[in-house]
């Protein structure tokens, strides 16, 4: 925040670059969605580029990207800690909101395309299937984080309370990884890669905290 005011208002080109970089990241983050929409309108095996089981393809695709954005957003702070690239910080909110955006689409595709609004089936899924319970829990916990992502909300809550609230993400990320791991049959490599990345991102924080505050145990 401080370097913003230092380099800030005086230099117009700096402002422009910041705004342009935000627009660029915004558009890049939309690429997965654009790609899957493109596929839906491309001919392919089983009707479209989404393949023979388009509901499954779409749902997994959106779930994959929700998890990826969640991990990318979680990587911002460690990158700042380790590489001192302070500029990445300005994308953190957008990346977090994109995680929420893709997980909302993931859930929507499940309700609309997979379950076709059979609410009784959806309810019994949530109650009976642990991996769906876990996935739904992490979605529900993301809602307050998305809602309080605005600058106004940070001010209203106060920085400390806001930070404490947003630490729920340290629970959300492992749960999201667990959801993915439990969804797959057998012991598969891919979910473990995501879980491994999440673990590393959380461990860096812990390590950094101990290093910067040696007294606090």
């Amino acid at each position: 925040m401080t370097q913003k005011s230092v380099s800030g208002a005086a230099s117009r080109p700096g402002n422009f670059r910041r705004a342009a970089s935000k627009v660029a990241v915004f558009i890049i983050c939309l690429m997965p969605l654009a790609w899957v929409i493109w596929l839906a309108f491309t001919p392919g095996v089983g009707g479209s580029g989404l393949g023979p089981n388009p509901q499954e393809f779409l749902n997994r695709f959106l779930g994959d990207w929700a998890l990826r954005f969640l991990l990318i957003a979680l990587a911002v702070t460690p990158i700042r800690m380790l590489l001192r690239w302070n500029w990445v910080f300005r994308f953190r909110r957008m990346l977090g909101l994109y995680a929420f955006f893709y997980v909302s689409l993931h859930l929507t595709s499940y309700v609309v395309l997979d379950k076709q609004f059979f609410w009784d089936e959806i309810w019994s899924d949530i109650v009976k299937r642990t991996f769906i319970t876990v996935g739904m829990a992490s979605f529900v916990m993301l809602i307050p984080l998305a809602v309080t992502s605005t600058a106004g909300m940070v001010k209203r809550l106060g920085a400390n309370r806001w930070r404490r609230l947003h630490q729920i993400v340290y629970l959300i990320a492992p749960l999201a990884c667990l959801h993915f791991f439990m969804m797959r049959k057998g012991v598969q490599l891919e979910p473990m890669i995501y879980a491994g990345i999440a673990t590393v991102l959380l461990m860096i924080r812990i390590w950094h905290r101990f290093r910067s505050r040696p007294g606090a145990g």
Binding site: G47, L58, R129, F131, M182
Partner: peptide, 20 residues
């Protein structure tokens, strides 16, 4: 049921995205 999903219905693959 399979512990992780219901077996009451099935999707016939290749029938499109809005198929029942």
């Amino acid at each position: 049921d399979h512990p992780r999903w219901s077996q009451a219905k099935e999707r016939i693959v290749g029938t499109g995205i809005f198929a029942e």
